Simulated assay, not measured.
Amino acid sequence: MTKRYEFKVPLDFSFLTNPEETISFFNEMILLIRKKEKMQFTIYIDIAGVKHLTIDALMYLLAIINNMRNIFKRKVSIMGNSPLDSEINRLFKESGFFNYVKTNSVVPISKNSDKIQIISGKNSDTRIARQISDFVSLKLGLSRSECSFIYIMMIELMSNTFKHAYNGKGLFSNRWYCFCKYDRTEQRVAFTFMDVGAGIPTTVRKNFIEKLDILKLKGEHQYVISALEGKFRTNTELKYRGKGLPKIHETCKSRKIINMRIVTNRADVKDDGVNIKGSELSTSLCGTLYYCELRKGVLL
C-alpha cells in the first residue's frame, strides 16, 4: 500500500502576508520528497480551510508538482482538495492553476478578463512580455510607450531566471511563473513573478565573494538591498546586461511601480522608491518572488 502524507496549508497561505509559515510549509514538503527519493508515496494537500490566499503560493506549489516528476525516476502522486471559501475558490479557479494539473473531477477553467492566468516558461519570451505590457496598457489606459518599462522588466526577470537563478541542483528546474490581476476598484494592476532558482543572496555569494568581503554585509536582506543599489556590477558588463535589480530600483524611484516586494532565500525586502527596507526570515525560500503594483495615477 502506498504511503500517504498529508500537508495542511497555513490559514494565511501567502509569501506576501505570511512568509515564515508559508516557506516552512513548502520546506517541509521538499524535505519529505528528498528524504523519500527512492520510494513511492502520495502527498495530499489540504487547502480546504484556507482563509487568505495569494497567487505566489499557488505558483510555488505548481513548481513542486511540475518539476519533481521530471527529476525523480519514480511516480509520486499529488492529490488535494479546493478552498471552501467561495471567493478564494473563485480565485483558485481563475488563477489558471488547473491548466497545469490533472484532476479526477471536471473542473471548469474559469477565465476573467481582469486577470492574466498563471504563465510559465524557461527562457526569455518576448511574446509574453508584450502580452503583459499590453495588458497594463489596456487596463490603465496608457500608451504602449508609457508601458515599455514593463516589457523591459519582464525580459530582465525572465533572463535572470535562465542565466543566473538556477544552480542546476535540487528539486527544481529553471522555470519562472507570472500572474497579473487588475483591481477595478483601486484601478491598479498587481504583478507577481516567481522563479525557483538559487535565489539572489546565493547568486551574489557565488559571483561576488571579494565585494562581500569589502562591504562586510550582515544578513541576506543586505545582499538584496546592495544589489538593488547596483553594488554588484562587474567591470565586463555589456550596456544592456545585468542591470535587472538596479533598473527595478530606478523604476521604483520614478514611481512607475509601487509597493515593490522581493522575497528570496532568507531576505524579505521592500522598496517604496524612497527607502529600501529589509528583514531576515527564520527560514529560507529556494527561489525569488517579485511583487509590485502599477496604478494609473502614479504612472501619469
Rank of each mutant, 00 (worst) to 15 (best):
V263Y: 03
L299K: 07
I88H: 06
I116Q: 03
V76A: 00
R233S: 15
Y223K: 11
Y100P: 09
T17V: 14
K216P: 10
Y166T: 08
I257S: 03
R266P: 06
S159N: 15
G278I: 00
M68C: 06
T126P: 04
K111W: 12
S86H: 05
D268G: 08
R74D: 10
K256D: 10
I200Q: 00
I150H: 00
K51P: 08
L91E: 05
R127P: 06
K75E: 14
T203V: 15
I118E: 04
K38T: 13
T283W: 09
R34D: 15
Q222I: 00
S145H: 05
K3I: 10
K231E: 11
L138G: 04
F41A: 01
I248Q: 01
D46R: 05
K181Q: 14
H52V: 12
V263D: 06
F172Q: 04
Y44K: 07
T185C: 12
T288V: 04
M59A: 04
L228R: 02
D272F: 08
M39K: 15
K75Q: 12
C178R: 01
M158V: 09
I33A: 00
T202H: 01
N27L: 09
L215A: 09
I109L: 15
L31M: 12
Q222E: 14
Y166H: 13
Y182L: 11
I43W: 10
L300C: 11
F172R: 03
D195E: 10
G287T: 05
S124P: 05
T103A: 11
E21Q: 12
M260A: 02
E37H: 13
P246T: 01
S113G: 11
K253M: 12
D46Y: 02
K36C: 09
R233L: 13
E156N: 00
N67V: 07
G80L: 08
R295K: 14
I116H: 04
P108Q: 12
S24Q: 11
S77M: 12
K253P: 04
I30A: 08
L245C: 00
F92S: 03
K35F: 11
N18E: 01
K73R: 12
K115T: 11
R205T: 07
K243A: 08
E37R: 13
V274T: 15
M68D: 01
L228D: 11
T42P: 00
F179L: 02
F135K: 06
S254A: 15
R184G: 11
H164A: 07
H249F: 09
F149C: 08
A129K: 03
R188Q: 13
V274M: 13
K38F: 10
K35H: 14
T264W: 02
T192L: 05
L16G: 03
E20Q: 02
K111I: 14
K115F: 15
I43R: 08
F208M: 04
F13I: 11
G49Y: 01
D12F: 10
S124W: 08
S24L: 15
E280Q: 06
K35I: 00
N174C: 13
R233W: 02
K36M: 11
G273F: 09
M29N: 09
M68F: 08
K270A: 04
K163P: 05
K8D: 06
F97W: 00
N67M: 13
I257R: 00
P83R: 04
G244E: 00
V107S: 06
G273D: 01
D213M: 11
